[in-house]
């Protein structure tokens, strides 16, 4: 006669999942606080160079006082080959661009209209004078500086006089 009873017929109690929403909400709030929204997914590949003593752009971003420009090699191989034939290895990508003509899309000539469109589309109470609206250039390490100055020239023509060169913060010092 065994002292142990076999608890046959009894089922394992289910795990209590009542606190699962709490855990998930906690995670959700963490991510909502710790991250910022992506301005757009660029179609060019940008590997940023490193630099020290940079200015953090996040406060400007939250006040949407900043426009992003990307400069890099196109991700799409076919497109890369097509533009390489024309001698354009590095292409531009502007955030939230609404354009119809593809041949204008990657050209510096479009910057003026892009910048002006963005400026016009802002509600009046968020409008700052155009010379204070930051244009942040995120360029690839290998991109030629000549292109940066081409962009500067375009911005100068429409009096958008604040520019920011994006880098990755280096950990040294």
């Amino acid at each position: 006669m065994s002292k142990f009873k076999k608890d046959s017929g009894k089922t394992v109690p289910g795990v209590n999942t009542a606190s699962l929403p709490d855990i998930v909400f906690m995670l959700l709030f963490f991510f909502m606080v710790a991250t910022t929204s992506k301005e757009s997914d660029p179609s060019v590949k940008v590997v940023q160079p490193e630099g020290a003593r940079t200015t953090d752009m996040t406060p400007f971003k939250q006040r949407s006082e900043i426009d992003f420009l990307y400069l890099g090699k196109p991700l799409n191989k076919a497109r890369a080959a097509q533009y390489a034939k024309m001698g354009m290895e590095y292409l531009l990508f502007m955030d939230n661009v609404a354009q119809s003509k593809p041949d204008q899309l990657y050209n510096t000539n479009t910057i003026k209209t892009w910048k002006k469109d963005k400026f016009e589309s802002k509600p009046p109470r968020m409008k700052k004078p155009i010379e204070n609206v930051i244009t942040c250039i995120k360029a690839d390490k290998g991109a030629p500086s000549g292109l940066i100055f081409d962009i500067r020239k375009e911005l100068q023509d429409i009096d958008a006089l604040t520019v920011a060169y994006a880098v990755r913060e280096s950990g040294k010092k």
Partner: peptide, 25 residues
């Protein structure tokens, strides 16, 4: 659902840059 939405649409990396002004034309 909300968590996954925020995971997808946001980034962690900060934007760091050097601000310079362009001289007026």
């Amino acid at each position: 659902l909300l968590l996954i939405f925020f995971l997808v649409t946001t980034t962690m990396d900060k934007d760091q840059a050097y601000i310079r002004s362009i001289p007026k034309n």
